[in-house]
């Protein structure tokens, strides 16, 4: 972009971002657009520099570890670092993929991850009700969002107490005390159910907020018109409301699945790997276990990490592909 106007500036090339006060334009009658064009070069440098800080962080702490994990997946590493590391081909992948424990962890993750879909569906119901002409909507919304700001550890401890076999309030409310007590933390089925319940309880708030925001943008006139046409509430919801909030649903679904495949904290806090029949061992727990409880298994941990990454990528691509059928961007 050639400069058509001379604008006097006294800026040294180097210090324009550090000392912005030095940027002095003389009074001039040049239209704004033209000034901007003249300042293009400085703007170019300032913009690139400012925008690059988060990117540098991403390269150092995201991109490099990502590629390193790929390299490490093909190495045998005696310890955490690279000293003594040897190339061992696809052996780590073979070890992981032929490990029953790994496949069990995949299955566990999927079963516990059902909470993602349950909480999304319930969040939509709650948000839909909230979008009606409701008194105290703000208060409800405020309460529903509380779990979002609570830590996984705190949530797990409080629910762990409530699910306690001997003195927990849940067995008390169910009338299952003494001999009949449900062993929530000691049996596979109840354990899974307990984890799903606490995950749904803590996971719904985010969905409710996003759905509520999306629902306020649904075309009210269209709903009224359909009502006059005799469409009942069920039809109105699926024909008008649901399609118009489908981008939000899709976003929550994609992010929810990505997050659910990486679940770790709840079962780790609950009983750190001593879950009944190991049903609390998720994929990330498997990987974590390789790093800290096996010697020389960094390669296997990285291989399982990449397998997890491929699963996540596959499911995300699948969801984007499927979204063409039901997600409606206007």
């Amino acid at each position: 972009m050639a400069s058509e106007f001379e604008v006097a500036t006294n800026v040294g090339e180097a210090d324009q971002t550090a000392f912005p006060e030095d940027v002095v334009l003389t009074e001039n009658p040049i239209p704004v657009k033209e000034t901007q064009r003249k300042k293009g070069n400085k703007e170019e440098i300032a913009g690139t520099l400012l925008a690059s800080i988060p990117l540098v962080g991403f390269v150092i702490f995201g991109m490099i570890p990502l590629l390193m994990a790929l390299a490490m997946a093909f190495l045998y590493m005696p310890r955490f670092g690279f000293e003594g590391a040897e190339f061992n081909g696809f052996k780590n992948f073979v070890t992981v993929l032929t490990d029953d424990m790994f496949w069990q962890s995949v299955w566990n993750t999927v079963l516990l991850g059902l909470s993602t879909f349950i909480s999304l569906a319930l969040a939509l119901v709650v948000a839909y009700f909230l979008s009606k002409d409701i008194k105290g909507r703000k208060a409800f919304r405020m309460i529903y969002f509380i779990p979002y700001v609570c830590s996984v550890v705190a949530i797990t401890l409080m629910w762990g107490y409530m699910f306690n076999t001997n003195w927990g309030i849940i067995n008390h409310l169910l009338g299952r005390t003494g001999e009949n007590a449900i062993d929530w933390m000691g049996e596979a089925g109840p354990y899974r159910l307990a984890v799903i319940i606490m995950s749904v309880w803590s996971g719904m708030g985010y969905g409710i907020i996003l759905f509520t925001a999306a629902l306020t943008n649904v075309n009210k006139e269209m709903i009224e018109a359909a009502e006059i046409d005799g469409a009942n509430a069920w039809v109105r919801f699926w024909r008008i409301v649901f399609p118009s909030i489908s981008p939000t649903t899709f976003y929550l679904l994609v992010m929810g699945v990505i997050g659910m495949l990486q679940s770790f904290a709840v079962t780790n806090v609950l009983n750190g790997g001593n879950s009944p029949d190991g049903v609390g061992i998720t994929i990330v727990y498997y990987l974590y276990n390789r790093i800290f409880n096996y010697i020389g298994a960094m390669g296997e941990a990285s291989a399982s990490a990449w397998i997890l990454g491929i699963i996540i990528l596959g499911l995300t691509v699948f969801q984007f592909w499927g979204s063409k059928k039901w997600v409606n961007y206007d």
Partner: peptide, 13 residues
């Protein structure tokens, strides 16, 4: 990028 993928390599770094 799922954070879980880089747990092991970040630890190595």
């Amino acid at each position: 990028i799922p954070g879980a993928i880089t747990i092991s390599s970040t630890y190595t770094v």
